[in-house]
Design a protein around this nucleic acid. Structure first.
Length: 145
DNA sequence: GCCAACGTTGGC
DNA sequence: GCCAACGTTGGC
């Protein structure tokens, strides 16, 4: 799961312990949260759009998917007038802090491992903020720490 | 700040 | 259904 550290970093999650992952407004990313995640699943917390893009820490899925409250809030920048409470368009999960990595495993470094070339994160043009990680890639990346 | 690679919108 | 225009993401 990607987040811009200027907005919400791994340190913010550490401090708050748990966070509703709101604001995802891409259908594919939503589907991964709604259909692909189960409570207890591991999450790589990725820092994007910053000086050192890469995996900064580990987190865990802490809830089933539910309607993102911000879509109903006219004052929120994530407000969606086309969504209704009866039939919410946007879903989210809660995420809880596990730990920071000892160091950021950078995007640049991940690109240098041929074994990881097929990761969704590394595929060309991928801008999704939520995407799946294979178990084998998860294990391999943790050995790089 | 630039720009490639998207996704969305809306006219037709 | 097509596609041009537009907006966003995110690395660099």
């Amino acid at each position: 799961m990607k987040s811009e550290p200027d907005t919400f970093s791994i340190d913010d999650l550490k401090r708050k312990k748990r966070e509703a992952w709101d604001g995802v407004r891409n259908y594919q990313a939503r589907n991964f949260m709604r259909d692909g995640m189960r409570v207890g699943d591991g999450v790589f917390f990725y820092h994007s759009n910053c000086a050192e893009p890469g995996i900064a820490g580990l987190a865990e899925v802490a809830s089933d998917a539910y309607a993102d409250p911000s879509q109903f809030d006219p004052k929120s920048k994530y407000f969606d007038s086309g969504s209704s409470r009866d039939n919410p368009r946007w879903m989210l999960v809660d995420v809880k802090f596990t730990r920071k990595l000892k160091r950021v495993i950078t995007l640049d470094e991940l690109k240098n491992h041929p074994k990881l070339a097929d990761m969704a994160l590394l595929r060309k043009g991928n801008r999704l903020s939520v995407m799946p990680v294979d178990g084998k890639d998860w294990q391999y990346i943790l050995t790089l720490e």
